[in-house]
Amino acid sequence: MLTLGIDIGSATSKVAVMRGGTVVLATALRRAGIGSDGPGAVLRDALRLAGCQMEDIAAVAATGYGRNMMEEADYRISELSCHGRGAHFLAPETRTLIDVGGQDAKVIRLDGRGRIMEFMMNDKCAAGTGRFLEVMAQVLGCGIQEFSGLAEGQEAAPISSTCAVFAETEVISRLAAGTPRGSIAAGINLSIAKRVGGLAMRMGVVPAVMMSGGVAQNASLVDMLGRELGADILVAKECQFCGALGAALLAWEKTRASGRKEP
């Protein structure tokens, strides 16, 4: 049975196609989220990569903030459950998952079967999210990929503000004062690590800890977060696909449980 999970976020759209709830046939990502052509395009990409058509898919589960807009979806599941199940698939020992997405940061406690037991999310503001990082990268005049490299191994300049608006001013004045860009980037990472770390510690950190979402590709930030929490942090190479994989898995489980026939 083929199932498909689509994770439509604020900044990106991701798809995973799976067979029998065990084999990943394809994953695809587009840097365009809700309200764009990203979801449609990424769906086509994934089907092409998996070598199948939409008719071959037994069930589709949509997750992420755009889940309710996905007409083809058989199931709409919160990104909390999907990320949890995806993390369990990638590393079954995961008990605490930290996901930093474009618009929010969440910490999820998982049981031994990858089901959520508890979660905490950041509040409405962008502090400690991918969006914050993007704004800061822009101020430093670099892309998000370059940003991580810039911060690597640098002494962190103090960035005290976690508010995107105030931090922008702070970064500009540091640049004007001649602080090296690498130190500023490290300082920005540290401010996010502290904010997300605080969220995790409020819930309590049970190992093993995994980090998912695009921000997990920022190695210097992961490192700082690990130090904040006093724990090793696993980062899977498919860290951006946790939600989509979880959705595909849950679509498979739910379809099997409902006894629906395969196409």
Partner: peptide, 15 residues
């Protein structure tokens, strides 16, 4: 955000 949190809570309860 409210919807996601409530759905997440429901999923915990269902679990």
């Amino acid at each position: 955000q409210f919807e996601t949190r409530i759905q997440g809570l429901e999923e915990i309860l269902e679990g």
